[in-house]
């Protein structure tokens, strides 16, 4: 055997070894990443006790937890609240974020740079700080506690213009010569926006709708503060945490919480997986452009 092919064989063996190691790591990782969710599903099907136990596979399988979740807790209210918030937020927020990012990306006007710097600096303040005053003002209008849903929609939507970065990054990538050509042909800026850029922007529109719809399902801080321990005004995150917030609650509701987790996770996960392509485009684009 010649020197070269020997070396070649050595490389091949080395390659095979490194690939094997990678496969092992990937399999282990997949297990670590998936196991808690498999546990969650199993525990949600456990009938014999609602408390935490030291085994995963239930001794008695059944849907009791799911039935109890919908009949004996306020979960249906929390689910409905979150769904309504998500629906309204996704529509209004998308309009706001797209107008904001489109303007900052493709229109040039006096004060544009200053506006962007101002919003960068405003973003350095912890958002929760504003809640102290917002809670108080919302409570004057009776938009807190049991009536939190419109209040939360307002809070999520009102400042959403500051989250324009990802979609601005998208608009930046569309060639400016398109606008110029249309302007030469006599199109107004409004027509350029609606007839030329919007039809090209399906990925970013879907990304914005998707993130706006999903955010209320995971928000905990604002929802907890605005709902103020009133069950009727909670979203799923606050509600499910409330279910297991004290040791006695935990003993009585642990498996119900697991069932709730599954009920929330399934639709969100399906939605996410179905629109994954747009999401990936959004996050990578946003990260690159900053």
């Amino acid at each position: 055997m010649s020197e070269i092919s020997k070396k070649h064989m050595g490389l091949k063996a080395k390659e095979r070894l490194s690939n094997t190691i990678i496969y092992i790591i990937l399999v282990l990782m997949s297990i670590v990443w998936l196991l808690p969710f498999i546990f969650l599903v199993f525990e949600s099907l456990r009938v014999e006790t609602t408390n935490q136990v030291g085994y995963v596979i239930p001794k008695v399988f059944g849907f009791d937890n799911y039935i109890n979740l919908f009949t004996k807790t306020d979960f249906p209210i929390w689910f409905k609240n979150t769904f309504i918030i998500g629906l309204f937020a996704s529509v209004i927020q998308t309009i706001i974020v797209l107008s904001m990012s489109y303007t900052l990306s493709r229109l040039r006007f006096k004060g544009r740079k200053g506006l962007m710097n101002l919003m960068l600096v405003l973003g350095f303040f912890p958002g929760f700080l504003s809640m102290i005053i917002l809670y108080k003002v919302l409570s004057w209008f009776n938009l807190t506690g049991a009536n939190s849903v419109p209040g939360l929609i307002l809070v999520y939507v009102a400042s959403s213009g500051m989250g324009y970065y990802v979609s601005k990054g998208f608009f930046d990538t569309i060639s400016r010569s398109l606008d110029e050509a249309a302007r030469v042909d006599g199109a107004t800026r409004f027509q350029v926006f609606t007839k030329i850029i919007m039809p090209l922007s399906k990925p970013i529109v879907i990304y914005t709708i998707l993130t706006a719809f999903m955010a209320p399902w995971g928000d905990f801080m604002f929802a907890k503060y605005i709902s103020h321990a009133t069950s009727a005004g909670m979203n799923v995150a606050v509600g499910l945490q409330y279910l297991i917030s004290t040791p006695s609650n935990l003993a009585a509701n642990y498996t119900l919480f697991c069932a709730g987790g599954v009920v929330v996770a399934i639709p969100i996960t399906i939605l996410f997986m179905a629109l994954q392509r747009y999401y990936v485009e959004g996050v990578t684009g946003g990260a690159v452009k900053g």
């Binding site: 997949s30 969710f37 499910l240 697991c258 987790g261 996770a265 996960t269």
Partner: peptide, 16 residues
């Protein structure tokens, strides 16, 4: 597999 786990709302995975 990895994306699937990140699709589940964070509060569920964290609390669990």
């Amino acid at each position: 597999i990895l994306v699937l786990t990140s699709a589940v709302p964070q509060f569920i995975s964290l609390l669990y």
